[in-house]
Write a protein that binds this DNA or RNA. Structure first.
Length: 363
DNA sequence: AATTCGGGGTC
DNA sequence: GACCCAGAATT
């Protein structure tokens, strides 16, 4: 670490921090996109946006952000909301623990800090779902405090500008970049500096084919000077996903209601709802009705086979064989029958929305 | 340090 | 297919 820090200081000897700050911040002020969370400096809005933007593109977040702020405009509104309603607002955005942790943290802020988002490293960093990046982003953007906010963009941009060859897939890499930002960051406008680095990564200093000819800090970039911009950052590959086969049944009762169940409160898609699903490694189609009777206490009559559903997560792949079924029973402990209009009130993960669409095309 | 957490857009 | 995205929590 000390060696790498010394290495950084060597790089900074022929680096004009003042000019770099000016070029970056001036460009950001001129070219920054007009985004809903840039309308003001409300720390709650900044906070919500930063959580939504974790591993998620700006274009994806925008409609969710509008709906979320309309539904939960304040800390207090989100604090007193039902978790199911928060998950419904998050439906389709993914990484649902973000939503649950955000509400947990908002409740903490409401109770322990009188509804004011903390403006210091210690208190902010203790909040659920607020890690090193989000902490720095909120402090710098909402409060103007010079703290590093190192995300994927910042690592890519600085790896090129400073020719840092550390593997950015490794956890310890972030520390190197945080040390670099602490040296580089503008004390006058840390908000524009941090956002400028990220905006640069999103618009100019892109992963592939960076637009160096349009770059406001081209003359500061060591990688460009050596023609190495396409070689950086160094990033090792992750392992590929494992495929999990499932059997799922859409069970309809006499009233035309369908059976759904709530997923466990921990793990994948926690507390979301789904159609009953059996591990196809343990249950065959022939055994499905028997398995269903065992699990749900309901006799079903299997009907037609629907379109199989394939869904790719970041670490696994679901391949679901989907069957239609009818039952005369109306109740079960393990789930609940809901009408096709009421099912819209339940947060369903995208793969199960794909199932739903096969029996009910929303208007 | 490695794994677990979603989903969509891009090439 | 592979890669990437304003990452954090858990083990």
């Amino acid at each position: 670490m000390n060696l790498q820090l010394d290495d950084l200081h060597v790089k900074f000897q022929h680096f004009s921090i003042d000019l770099f700050q000016n070029d970056l911040i001036n460009w950001f002020q001129q070219e920054k996109r007009s985004l809903p969370w840039r309308e003001n400096r409300d720390p709650y809005r900044i906070w919500v946006s930063e959580i939504m933007l974790q591993q998620t593109k700006v274009d994806t977040v925008i409609p969710y952000f509008h709906r979320f702020m309309e539904r939960f405009p304040t800390i207090q509104a989100l604090a007193k909301a039902d978790e199911q309603d928060v998950l419904k607002a998050w439906e389709g955005l993914g990484y649902y623990s973000r939503a649950r942790n955000l509400q947990t943290a908002v409740r903490e802020v409401a109770q322990a800090y009188g509804g004011k988002v903390p403006d210091n490293v210690d208190e902010l960093g203790k909040l659920k779902g607020v890690g090193p990046y989000t902490k720095g982003a909120i402090l710098s953007i909402a409060y103007g405090i010079p703290q590093p906010a190192v995300d994927g963009n910042v690592m890519r941009v600085l790896s090129r500008i400073l020719l840092i060859t550390e593997d950015i897939a490794k956890p310890k890499a972030r520390k190197i970049f945080e040390a670099a930002v602490e040296e580089l960051i503008s004390r006058e406008d840390p908000s524009s500096f941090n956002q400028g680095l990220m905006e640069l990564g999103a618009l100019i200093c892109t992963p592939k084919k960076p637009a160096c000819m349009l770059c406001p800090v081209q003359e500061h970039c060591a990688a460009f000077q050596q023609g190495l911009q396409e070689e950086l950052p160094i990033k090792s590959k992750g392992k590929k996903q494992k495929t999990m086969p499932y059997l799922s049944v859409i069970v309809e009762n006499a009233q035309g209601e369908v059976l759904i169940e709530k997923r466990p409160e921990e793990g994948l898609l926690a507390n979301l709802w789904q159609f009953p699903m059996a591990d196809a490694a343990e249950v065959s189609v022939e055994q499905l009705a028997y398995w269903f009777k065992l699990e749900y206490g309901i006799q079903i009559e299997l009907g037609e086979t629907l379109q199989p559903v394939r869904h790719v997560f970041s670490h696994i792949i679901w391949e679901i064989i989907v069957l239609h079924a009818k039952t005369a029973d109306a109740t079960t402990e393990q789930g609940r029958f809901v009408s096709l209009s009421d099912i819209n009130d339940y947060p369903l993960p995208v793969p199960h929305q794909k199932l739903l669409q096969q029996i009910h095309v929303p208007e």
